[in-house]
Write a protein that binds this DNA or RNA. Structure first.
Lengths: 187, 187
DNA sequence: ATCGAAGGATTATGGTCATAATCCATACAA
DNA sequence: TTGTATGGATTATGACCATAATCCTTCGAT
């Protein structure tokens, strides 16, 4: 295994573990052990745990929604994306799912540098989303994209935060119907 | 200071600190020191740190949106609430703001017991929200309430997660226009 | 066959944490 | 005045963490 392969393996394992447990509950020894390695070698690959966090999250932030049928636009596209995002499968697999939803607590509190790094990933997602919207101006399309993404994110987070299975499904179903207000009501 | 007063003081300080720093970054020594007390006495008031977390978050979850003018309903009410919730002031004061938004990471990963406890607070909020909606059936009003709350939550979280001030304001403004789809498109 | 680099392992280090056992000072009861 | 309960302080305890220094082993180059 080359050094680069080892590095990628650490990033992959950490990316999943960070999403499952959160930043502070994920320890360097845990990550390395899950890789079949020991703590000692870690700092040959990363400057610090924070360095690993940035690498792992940056990797996980790139969602694949861009791949959908380019013909889909507006509400039809949103329905497809919402039906992919707000599922029980996604809800129950934070480790393989949306990094924003899984790490929202840590991202909010990350330092300025890290937030700037993560923002690049966010912008990428919103750019893709805006490209599917049908507003007249670019500003309107971006606004719709933010609205839509916020609804998805909030819905998934809420569905993961309740203990009752029925309530959780109620939330998922309710939020799948979210749709940005087509009438733009502000200046 | 009576024992109960001390207990309430600890809860109040912890409630703020949890929201500012998150669960794991808030330590028992820190909380007690901020109260002008020492670690030792802590376990005279709470069984464990987790016990304190439940008490503090349960306290913070009760939002005060119920107090608004009872005449406000539907879109007019939503506009008022969104204008209160999606502000730079709220964004920059997690310690005094919405506990769901601040602790979304920890709530998602909390144990079954804790999540059940928090769910009671969530149900309270959604009940209040649903009471302001204009859907025909109770199920529709609840669905609108979840949608609306998810949009608020996601918007605030996103606005806190980006480093760039302009982007943050863009998100707040975009999400203030969120409105549940009035046409119910699912079964 | 020998050497040297370097990836990874062992082992330290200094700190902090949650929790607990014990101690002290005050205040109220007898 | 003496005794006792208790809220809070001191001080342990055992675990774990991020990081670092040092060591070992493998492997490609000579």
């Amino acid at each position: 295994m080359t050094k680069e392969e080892t590095r990628q393996k650490i990033i992959g394992v950490a990316s999943r573990m960070f999403r499952e447990r959160g930043e502070r509950a994920t320890t360097v020894p845990d990550v390395m052990q899950a890789c079949g390695l020991t703590v000692g070698g870690f700092y040959k690959h990363f400057e610090s745990k924070d360095d690993l966090f940035r690498a792992a999250v940056g990797d996980a932030l790139r969602t694949r929604f861009g791949r959908l049928d380019p013909g889909l636009r507006g509400e039809a596209w949103r329905r497809v994306v919402a039906d992919l995002y707000l599922t029980e499968l996604h809800r129950d697999n934070p480790g393989g799912g949306c990094a924003f939803a899984a790490l929202c607590g840590d991202l909010q509190r990350a330092g300025e540098d890290s937030r700037r790094w993560f923002q690049a990933g966010l912008e990428e997602v919103v750019g893709i989303f805006a490209g599917r919207m049908e507003g007249e101006t670019e500003a309107q399309r971006r606004a719709q994209a933010w609205q839509f993404f916020a609804g998805l994110l909030g819905g998934l987070i809420l569905s993961r935060s309740v203990a009752d299975a029925e309530a959780s499904v109620e939330i998922l179903e309710a939020c799948r119907a979210i749709d940005p207000s087509s009438a733009d009501e502000q200046g």
